[in-house]
Write a protein that binds this DNA or RNA. Structure first.
Lengths: 125, 125
DNA sequence: CGAGTAAACGCAACAGAGTTGCGCAAGGTG
DNA sequence: CACCTTGCGCAACTCTGTTGCGTTTACTCG
């Protein structure tokens, strides 16, 4: 039985309560500290990995070399601003029947995909 | 005027002549050495970056944390085998009009995308 | 033909992000 | 109350990619 963990609790609180939908470890750490929670990078990282293993969090790679985490939920794609790095959520799966077509083109058995759109966010345009 | 560079020449020869279409630096290095070319990791890396700057090579990120390089050509997507790491090319752009739809959903001005399908290659199925 | 200059190369060091080992602290349990 | 396990912070380590530097080597200009 897990013992109380103020770091993990705070991480889960952020995941649940914030209006942000993706976090790097650094971002999560900064928000926790802004909320008065004392925490270390590695503890936040381990909490996020723990949540990932529980299935409540998914790891997202938008191709900028930093790991991001988001609450698990409906599958969706992401758009990353190439100027400021903001990551927006693209609701719904825009790919529809494409994986089957890709499968028949390549012989691969496709079971996942990673799609990130790159451009300029509204603020950076 | 560039001086003769046996490493760069060999790299370009591989890019042109091999039936492989994406290389990590390690893979390129291994093939060069198998072909009897003496070269160092950093020299191969610099040659690939040089080709990238010339526009003859594009850098590809398939989300496994390793940089790959491919000869520049028609835009296409990639499929990566999650077991053995093989990367296959998906000919053509399967996305068609999706970027505009994404733009209107998110407000982003989309000018690129990164799409990788993940699954099992024919050998690994 | 020789001196000078700039490019190419290999070696090794550095950088950034993620990951892990370890010792201490602290909550739960018998 | 003693013990045991887990959480935490610190620091070290990994893995790629990247870069600095000294040496070699090929051009070029006198």
């Amino acid at each position: 039985m897990p013992r109380p963990s103020h770091v993990r609790d705070a991480v889960q609180g952020q995941l649940r309560g914030s209006n942000r939908h993706v976090w790097t470890v650094e971002e999560m750490l900064a928000e926790l500290r802004a909320a008065g929670v004392a925490a270390d990078f590695s503890s936040v990282f381990r909490s996020l990995v723990w949540c990932e293993e529980q299935g409540s969090v998914k790891r997202v790679d938008v191709g900028d070399g930093r790991a991001r985490f988001e609450p698990a939920g409906d599958h969706h794609e992401h758009a990353r601003c190439e100027r400021c790095g903001t990551v927006a959520e693209v609701p719904g799966c825009v790919l529809a029947d494409i994986p089957e077509r890709v499968g028949s083109l390549t012989g691969f058995a496709i079971n996942a995909h990673r799609l990130v759109f790159i451009g300029l966010c509204p603020d950076c345009q």
